[in-house]
Structures are given as C-alpha cells and as structure tokens.
Amino acid sequence: MAQRALHGVNLTGWLTLEAWVTPTLFADSGALDESALIGSIGRDEYRRRLEAHRSGFVRQADFNQIAARGFNAVRLPVPWYVFGTDGPRPGPFVGCLAQVDDAFDWADEIGLKIVLDLAITPGAEGAEADLVRNHTDFAHYRNDMLDVVRGLCKRYGSRVAFAGIEVADTPRIQTRRGFSVSEGVALHQLRNYYRDAYDIVREEAGADPLFVIPDGGRPGAWNRFMAHDRYENVLIDCHLFHYNDRVDRVGPSGIRELVERSKASLRAVEKSGLPAMVGKWSGSLPFADTITTPEGRIALERIYISEQLATFKPCAAWFFQTWKTEGRLAGWDARVSLSSFERRMLA
C-alpha cells in the first residue's frame, strides 16, 4: 500500500450526538444518549437543538485549522440514518447528508482526506443499540448497513477527498466461556458482513479507496482474514484507549506499561497480514495522582502522547479522539492535547 499514511482527528459528536462532547445539548434532560434525549425533550425540541448544533459545532474554519495544524485527514462518524427518509427507516432521527456534503467540499478545497465511519456498533446492548431498529439480531439490520455503505460510496466515491470507509464502528463480538455465550455478534456473521461490504465498496467506488474493518476489541481474531490477493487496500482498525485500564504504577513507569499494551495490540493485528489503523486514541491517563501538580499532569500527558505517536509511526493511519469538545477536555480535545506538538510530529 503506497498511499501516504493518514494522520488526523475524529469529528466525534458532530453528526451523532455525544453527551461527553457537548454536554449542554443534554442539559436538564437527564439523558446521556441521543435516543434517550428524544424521549426526554420530545421530537420538536430535539430537532431544534440538533439543527443548531450541526450548523455550528464544526465549520469550514475547523477544517482549515485541522489542516494548518499538520493533519492530513479526518475520520468522520456518520449515523446509519445519514440519508434521512431516503435511507433505512430513520424513526425520530434526522438525516445529515447536507453536512457530509459540506465536509467533502471543505476537504476538497484544502486537500484533506476523509475516512467515513459508519457509526453503528453491531452486537451492542442498551441505549446505543436503540439507535438501530431490530437491534436484537444483527442479521435483521446488516442489509440496512450495506445499503447505507452503498449509498455513501455511490455519492462520495469519486470525490478527491474520499480516502475510504469504515463499515462499522466498534462491534461487540460474542465470546464463549465454557457453555455460556456473551451477548454480541458472532464472529462469522461479522466476517461475512465485511466481505459483502467490501464487494459493495469496490463496485461503487473502485479499488483505490481504503476499506477499513474494526477489530471489535479482538486484535488477534483476524489471522489472514482478507489478506490474500482478492482484497486490496484493506486496513484493520484497533481503538487504543487506555483511560479505563488498571495500572499498577503511576508516572512514567505507568505510561510505559500503557504503551506496551498498545504495542501488544498492534503486534496481534500484524498477524492478520493487514496494515493497522488506530481509529481512536487519546491522551487521557487512567491513573490519578494527588501528588502531581496540574503542570506535572500536563507534562505526563505530553510524554504519553509522544510515546503513542512513536508507537503508531508504522501504522497506515491514526486518528486522535477527538478534534473538539465543548469543555476543551484535556486528554481528549486535540486543540488542547496536541497544541504544543510541532507539525512534523503530526504529519
């Protein structure tokens, strides 16, 4: 794969709502996700808040700033209801095709690449899964997902900015322990979906765009999958967050422990025979240290980010989580976490 490595940021919380990114959208509702928000405030107020948010949260100026910081790509999560009433039944949710069109116009103008991410988590339970009708069985909505993939590739496959598409976000894969099976999507079902999605992407967009499959938190489960000659330009995405990890040590030694875990995941991905993409990572540390000063904490996060950047250097792509948050969250907001890094470290 001769393409230049993609180094960029996620645009999380723009087209799909995330309470941790924009808490004011959820204020006084008691809701923590988009589905619950609709139930709490009603469809009319939901639509009003959503339209105001989407028109103002990410603008052309953000794309210009992203490029100016040295990034060459963005990873853009789009909901399954992106096409609104022209796609799978959207229920109370509002499509966002106009905003995706804007993103491609802005990216084309300044030479940024876009990796579209179909923001569905197959096999997920609970509130997230409520965003997908018939979510209790992946077989019931996989064809809807394929229809959305086809529509996105047909619409954007010829755009200069179109780098590729990730055909799910973070699947939850079934695991077996003795005679019990966890909730989630069976691995063979997910693999068959990936194969079908690949054929659609190639049919609609050709052989050049990247086809990205998420590892579902199982980096070692993809040995030689899609690695033979029939498949071209395939990446496997692993999300390397460690903010919930248990770490025995703090400070630089704790950071080394976290980075070693990332390296272990990437070594497992290597066995798949596919290039790795780190679709989401952050500078958020999982350990609290009451002794370290705020300045010292910032220094530790900088060391952590630097070590991660070095670890991800061989990867075909990486995307920091995320470009912006309402509260400029340290460790998560690229405008804060990566502001002191030189362009050459990010490009």
Rank of each mutant, 00 (worst) to 15 (best):
T325M: 10
T22W: 02
L329S: 11
L274C: 05
L266F: 09
D215Y: 03
L152V: 07
P88F: 02
F312M: 10
G126R: 07
I38G: 02
A347E: 15
D144I: 03
V181G: 00
H228G: 10
E270K: 14
A2P: 14
V148H: 08
T170N: 12
A161V: 06
R54A: 01
T16C: 13
I114D: 04
Y193W: 06
A316Q: 12
P77H: 06
D86I: 00
F57Y: 15
D245R: 10
R343Q: 13
A139V: 07
W332L: 14
P275Y: 01
A330N: 11
Y156Q: 04
D137E: 14
T16L: 12
W318C: 02
Y141F: 15
P122K: 05
A31I: 11
L146S: 04
D208N: 12
F179C: 00
E125Q: 15
A36L: 12
A124G: 05
T24K: 09
C315A: 15
P92E: 02
S40N: 03
M345E: 15
E326H: 07
A221T: 01
P214E: 11
R155N: 02
R4K: 14
Q99H: 12
A268R: 14
T121G: 08
R142Y: 09
E45N: 05
M226I: 08
Y81H: 15
T136N: 14
P90Y: 02
A107I: 07
A67V: 01
L329I: 13
G111M: 07
L131N: 12
G111R: 10
Y193S: 06
P294V: 03
I298Q: 15
R344Q: 14
W323G: 01
H239W: 03
I305G: 01
D144T: 04
L346R: 11
G126N: 04
S40R: 10
H242Y: 13
I66Q: 07
W20R: 08
E204P: 04
G217F: 10
T325D: 05
R155Q: 11
M1P: 07
A119L: 15
D101R: 12
E109P: 00
E18D: 13
M226Y: 05
R89M: 06
D196W: 06
R159L: 04
I173K: 03
A347L: 11
A197M: 04
V336Q: 13
V167D: 02
A73L: 05
S55Y: 03
G8R: 08
I114C: 04
F319Y: 09
G126Y: 08
V212E: 00
L112N: 09
V212F: 00
E295V: 12
K154P: 00
E232G: 02
P92I: 09
E295A: 14
F71R: 02
D108Y: 01
P92Q: 03
P219F: 12
A264K: 13
P88N: 01
L274A: 06
A61L: 07
F138I: 09
G84H: 10
A316D: 06
V115P: 00
P314G: 09
Y198M: 05
G157W: 04
T175D: 01
V115W: 00
